[in-house]
Design a protein around this nucleic acid. Structure first.
Lengths: 351, 351
DNA sequence: CCAGCTGCTGGAAACGTTTACAAGACACGG
DNA sequence: CCGTGTCTTGTAAACGTTTCCAGCAGCTGG
């Protein structure tokens, strides 16, 4: 027994007194005589047979596995994606392989290359930055890939993007509409895709509202609760006239900022409004609950998974490759207590 | 080309003018003559060869994949476990297969049975309830399994447990120590393992502190922010003398309860203290930051993964099976602003 | 009674590796 | 010059499936 004593199709064939071909056919629901079918079924049940998925994959050329690679499973945004992807994959009979890249580009490239080892049938990649190496590796990928994020035009790969420029602008205009005029911006690193596009949205909305661009109101830091708190403290302690609103590039920053505000004895939203982005679980967890821009993490995960499964259903497609699809998930502003108009104090309720 | 045009060991052999055996040996770093080695290496590089992991698994009987099955990837506790497991697995050269069971026992059993399909080398299972069927399936598992959770004694399976009885007791004694005397308990479903053990810890600590058991101070609901808020409102609106502390079975409940308290215009911790369990990201996200009992989710994930890898390193072990290990991760109380002593009002800072 | 069809079955090849085994090349000491 | 040893190489079998193909039995219609 070189195997672990595990029954195989051969053991069943012997026990049922038929050939392995017949066993395979019966087990896959193809035609067979009544008593053959029965004998095979019984033998399989008695031995507790479970088909070996590896052998099946080798023969069939498909593993029924999908890979999802993202920077950090600790971030609620990616958790939402994992959840959506897992659910779509499961419904379609695929297993989900998780790969945490720790936002290391080298690691992302390795994942891309490892598609060639046939461990999974397709890949959903969520890179934090897109380098020329990424583009090249994407072109040379050994299997279907869907990217969650913004790809430069011309890269022949399916992708699903969030419109964070529009999202950021929505938030800023909302703050303006509730009477705020000195809207500070706490952003993540400016050299990442999310960082730069949020910046663009912020500026655009300021211009749209006729507000001046004050460099002193913008802080770049990295994503994280503590960073948000530190940035907010700096803005509040600054020499200039203090801001009356914090727009933050994600919920973690917003939460940190809110804590700093409250710790100073200021009230939210009466003295200062706070808004975040991503609408993760943290937004609802804050006090007061945080207004946030839902960038559709779940939705993006869902669509990416569906795009990938589509691709897998019609492979190659007779020479003419199906042209790559790019879909954009629209942002959605979720208003909660942290940005109620400065005059209306009762709105800061649990929502 | 029945394959996707992907180069195989055969293409390399042809191109290098050697046998497939030589290719395999060279690529696995076994002895070969200098020029053979070189030719094979070059051919492999030129063709962009990547070994097929499926074929390798079939031959070797190992997939280098681990499966982690948990109720819900949306819960921060499981996210912490995933993260820890992923990190250990990655370091050991294993991939991680994720399986969300949605807390459905049937699904958990299916995962257990599917170990027989040889898709992964081992399983880490985190069940929410343990039924007799679970015990049976665990005994019949076709590969190594580690359970995260409390198994009845005598089940021959490795397990890693949290001591939530002690953890709950710690929290309650801490509330007592900070001057609270009417400590309400917002618990999850009592028929789950976590639910019942937290209940035990709560009662034990009350007894230890010499406080009476008041049935009116205990609420069972399900885990979730909204449920926590609803339960807290019920307790605050009750006819009896209101509680001066909420001990909650997890952070989500605690957060909901805190929101309800604040929405009523009461102050935390001055009027009422709130403590949760799990010490997830939510605890630090709350305002004031929530005191919570860290049940070591990361640590449990890490140990489970290591236990599993250990098992994989020495399989069978010459007839005498290695006896199953059960380790318990001790709880740790993390004190934050939400339970500062009623007299000291300055402690409710960002922590 | 035979040709032709249908329905079922078994043998064998294939998927891409790893590895046991045997055989060849070569050097060396006797 | 031959036996013996070492080093390198190739052939072939295996891992557990699926599936192509051919064969065989049993009918039906002529």
């Amino acid at each position: 027994m070189p195997n672990g004593g595990q029954p195989t199709i051969v053991s069943i064939a012997r026990r049922a007194g038929v050939s392995i071909a017949s066993v395979s056919r019966v087990l896959n629901g193809q035609g067979a005589r009544r008593d053959t079918t029965e004998r095979v079924r019984r033998a399989a049940a008695e031995l507790g047979y479970v088909p070996n998925a590896v052998a099946r994959s080798l023969k069939g050329g498909r593993t029924r596995q999908l890979t999802f690679a993202m920077p950090d499973i600790g971030n609620p945004v990616y958790v939402a994606m994992v959840r959506a992807i897992q659910s779509v994959a499961k419904a379609a009979g695929y297993r989900l392989l998780l790969h945490s890249t720790d936002a290391v580009a080298e690691d992302e490239l390795a994942v891309l290359r490892s598609l060639g080892d046939r461990t999974s049938d397709g890949l959903i990649l969520c890179p934090i930055r897109i380098t020329p190496e990424h583009i090249e590796a994407l072109g040379a990928a050994a299997g279907p890939v869907v990217v969650i994020g913004s790809l430069p035009p011309g890269v022949p790969v399916d992708s699903v993007r969030a419109d964070s420029v529009a999202g950021a602008a929505m938030a800023v205009r909302h703050l303006y509409a509730t009477g705020r005029r000195r809207i500070a911006f706490i952003n993540g690193p400016s050299d990442t895709v999310p960082g730069s596009s949020r910046d663009a949205g912020y500026r655009k909305a300021l211009a749209h509202c006729g507000l001046p661009q004050e460099p002193g109101l913008v802080v770049h830091t990295d994503f994280g609760i503590e960073s948000g708190a530190a940035a907010a403290e700096r803005l509040l302690a600054g020499p200039a006239e203090p801001p009356d609103a914090f727009f933050c590039a994600n919920d973690q920053l917003a939460l940190g900022a809110a804590h700093a505000v409250l710790a100073r004895g200021l009230r939210i939203p009466e003295d200062l409004a706070v808004a975040g982005m991503d609408d993760s679980a943290l937004a609802r967890a804050g006090w007061p609950p945080l207004t946030s821009v839902d960038l559709g993490s779940s939705e993006r995960g869902r669509r990416a998974a569906e795009l990938l499964l589509d691709r897998l259903r019609r492979p190659g497609d007779g020479g003419a490759v199906v042209s790559p699809a790019t879909t954009t998930v629209p942002p959605r502003l979720v208003v909660r207590g942290s940005t109620a108009p400065a005059t209306d104090q009762k709105t800061a309720r649990y929502a």
